[in-house]
Write a protein that binds this DNA or RNA. Structure first.
Lengths: 336, 336
DNA sequence: TTGTACGCGTTATCAG
DNA sequence: CTGATAACGCGTACAA
């Protein structure tokens, strides 16, 4: 039999409405009574019923996080951090690994106070809410969108990567990433690369931008393999994501090449996992701490007051130097 | 303004109890009315209120999954699969990345119908529920436990790994894993190794079982590095987990050794990520499809009828051959 | 087959 | 400060 506030009221000799107040730490109850009630609640093993609470208060103190791509691990550290920040703000967080549409439906049913969406790949077009409307915040790419998003300044990221490589002496740099038109974020990365290279006066050849046709490690692997088998190889590669980098590493190994001796590699995604690869990679991206705080603060602000944050907020990426870059080999090496 | 069944009732000219029945697809309503009600509901953009539904029915049709170690990616594929199976059974699933204790509290507040716990490392002792009691199923190691668990037959796994290596000609096999007494699962793995080696008549030296003192890739890395620097190296290693294997790979690379030419490696954890490593690893473990089905079926059965499943269920592991094992090098090589 | 009425556990609004 | 009491949205006996 479940313990309710009525049971507590009975056991502690006050009315259940007083119990309710005491449990919510209302200033309207005498400290003595409050203490007693809490004690009894503890003793009885009381667990609040969110369903009832949410039904009565129209608030759930919970936010939902949609994360359909848990296999793409680039985000797991971010999720953990976000959870931490959420709790610090005395909210709870629940996740769903369903596709965005289904997950949002689920969260709506739960009447979460706000929703965060992590989508990599094709962004779902969320139907205009005919019914109830819940604050939604996406970690996504700028463009047409009705919900606010937190985005990364992709061009700046690419800029930092290219500048770093340039300073090491690289002129022949390739970008390897997914170019499928459905994924705006990936498009933006490659376009940024194009622009930065132009601005730096570095020439773009046919091999400068390589389409992996997908975001999995295998796509990166096949693309890199093709690239590395050619006679005129780049001296440095910028990879569009963690997973693609994993594939590139594999291809590099199979071609008996060494990083950074034969090839420098910078990866997108500034995550801890970069350091634990068989070859630790230098990377660019927004530090997860910053991202987590920005996202949670924004969503909570949105919950408090609709329209209180800009539709687009861009975060500044940073370069995280590890050991996968070096000055390009001397000329003779090119005939390899 | 949120749409409720009363609104639907009003708009479609029936009572709201009829609407309720229609929405739940009860046989007690005429198909005509049912169709009409559903249509109106759709039109109005109705979203059921789980809070209310759960309050009234005392069921949430939702299970909670506790997963504090999302960084340890070995389980992400399993989680996705479980979600799939759960939905197929017309339940929903929500996740929490909190520590088990907090997560269970959260889920209890939500009145989920059942809870699954994924803990790697120290298993939390859940307090005896003074209050409400929810079916809990753990993915854990056998031992003292009050909640039912799904476990892996670790000894069999090790047996398969050793047998495979033995057949390839290996006699000098080491196990590299975490031996911290807090983690029963890891203990069981290493003990299994010991037993199997004894039974196979293979001798155990001081280097046969190596304690990584932790489960992260870095722990695997330092342990392997120490091992590989010695003059008498094993010809094959069995690694206790995916992450540890990642570390071993890194150490192997730094020592300028090749897999499988200089060293064979089999990893625990039968997950897709094994194939995408820079060096794809042969692995042993329970196929995730089987695991997912067993876990979901067991929990649902537990929800339907408490005590309807055994306290411990062991799953049979399988060997997944990739390319990280070969016959040991000829004798001369040993002087490397 | 449909409608009425009550209860689920909690919050919130008043009146004491 | 405390205690009734009316919602909150829905499921479900029970009545019609």
């Amino acid at each position: 039999m479940t313990v309710t506030i009525k049971d507590i009221a009975h056991a502690s000799g006050v009315s259940y409405s007083t119990v309710s107040k005491a449990l919510r730490n209302s200033p309207l109850v005498k400290p003595d009574t409050k203490k007693k009630v809490l004690q009894v609640a503890e003793q009885l093993g009381y667990t609040p019923n969110f369903a009832a609470r949410s039904l009565a208060s129209k608030k759930s103190q919970t936010i939902g996080l949609v994360w359909p791509t848990i296999e793409r691990i680039a985000l797991s550290a971010l999720v953990t951090k976000i959870n931490e920040v959420v709790e610090k703000n005395s909210y709870s967080m629940i996740l769903s690994v369903n596709r965005a549409k289904e997950a949002v439906e689920l969260f709506k049913s739960f009447r979460v106070d706000g929703i965060m969406i992590f989508e990599e790949g094709g962004e779902t077009q969320l139907s205009d809410d005919t019914g109830l409307t819940i604050p939604i915040l996406s970690y996504g790419v700028s463009g047409e969108h009705t919900h606010p998003i937190i985005d990364v300044n992709h061009k700046k990221a690419i800029y930092k990567a290219v500048a770093y490589l340039y300073q090491l002496g690289h002129k022949n740099i390739s970008y390897v990433g997914d170019l499928s038109p459905a994924d705006k974020r990936q498009i933006e990365k490659s376009k940024g690369f194009e622009e930065v290279m132009m601005e730096a006066g570095l020439k773009l050849s046919r091999n400068s931008i390589l389409n992996t046709n997908g975001l999995s490690w295998y796509n990166g692997y096949t693309a890199a393999k093709k690239l590395l088998q050619q006679t005129s190889k780049p001296t440095a590669i910028i990879s569009g994501s963690y997973d693609i980098s994993v594939g590139i590493l594999r291809a590099v190994k199979e071609q008996q090449l060494s990083i950074p001796e034969d090839l420098s590699l910078i990866s997108y995604d500034n995550i801890p996992q970069m350091a634990s690869l068989e070859t630790p990679l230098t990377s660019v991206g927004v530090p997860i701490d910053q991202l987590a705080h920005k996202m949670v603060d924004s969503l909570l602000s949105l919950i408090r007051e609709p329209g209180s944050i800009p539709l687009t907020q861009k975060m500044d990426p940073e370069l995280n130097v590890r050991m996968s870059c070096a000055s390009p080999a001397v000329l003779g090496k090119e005939n390899n």
